[in-house]
Amino acid sequence: MENRLPDWIEEQMDDAIDPLVARAKSEVMTVDVQGGPAGHTGLRARVAAGVGVRKGISTKNNAYFRIYTSMANTAESPIPRGLDSPKGWRHPLFGNRNHWFQSRPTRTGWFTDTIADGADNIERAIANALDRAADTIG
């Protein structure tokens, strides 16, 4: 068996997933952090740049996709989840490891709520793709 989805299935999935990824990127740009410095430090832009999709075929020939967040700087890897959680994230204040600070977002769910809101559209796209595949085989 070939380890790749037909192009039309991938296109249908992309049509369902890409707007959701774009919306998550947009949502994180609207999150403010309580007690943080005034102004825009570029943190939210770095988080938005790290939102993406992994697609593929597993070793058991199961197709999958995963919407994820990552940070280019591994020291910042807790930040996307911290921006999505009421707990926030802990970090050294201005790099001073003797003084730690807890940053908390003023609202949560930029990632989890956005993805959950789009789940029905993705489910519909998968069902449509499977129906089309069944029609093609039949």
Rank of each mutant, 00 (worst) to 15 (best):
T41V: 01
M29S: 10
A75D: 13
I79S: 13
R81Q: 14
W100F: 09
N61R: 14
H99L: 06
K60P: 07
I67D: 09
T112G: 04
R104Y: 07
N73M: 05
D120Q: 07
P105M: 10
D113Q: 09
G35D: 07
Q34I: 08
V31P: 05
G82T: 05
L83C: 11
D113L: 02
L43Y: 10
D84P: 06
G56R: 11
G95H: 03
A63S: 13
G39C: 10
G52Y: 02
F94D: 12
T112Y: 05
D113A: 03
R97H: 14
A49F: 00
Q34E: 15
H91S: 09
T69Y: 00
Y64D: 11
N98A: 05
A38K: 15
N61W: 09
L83M: 15
E123Q: 08
N62C: 09
R90E: 14
A48G: 06
V31Q: 08
A119N: 08
N121H: 14
T114N: 11
S77H: 02
V51W: 01
L43K: 15
I115L: 12
V53R: 15
P37Q: 15
R54N: 12
S77D: 03
N61L: 10
T114W: 07
E76Q: 07
T69R: 04
N98R: 06
V33E: 12
A116H: 06
R107E: 12
Q34C: 11
T41W: 01
D32A: 15
R44Q: 06
F65M: 02
E76P: 04
R44A: 03
A38Y: 12
T69E: 05
H91T: 07
T112Q: 07
M29R: 13
R66W: 06
K87L: 10
W89K: 09
G42N: 10
H40W: 12
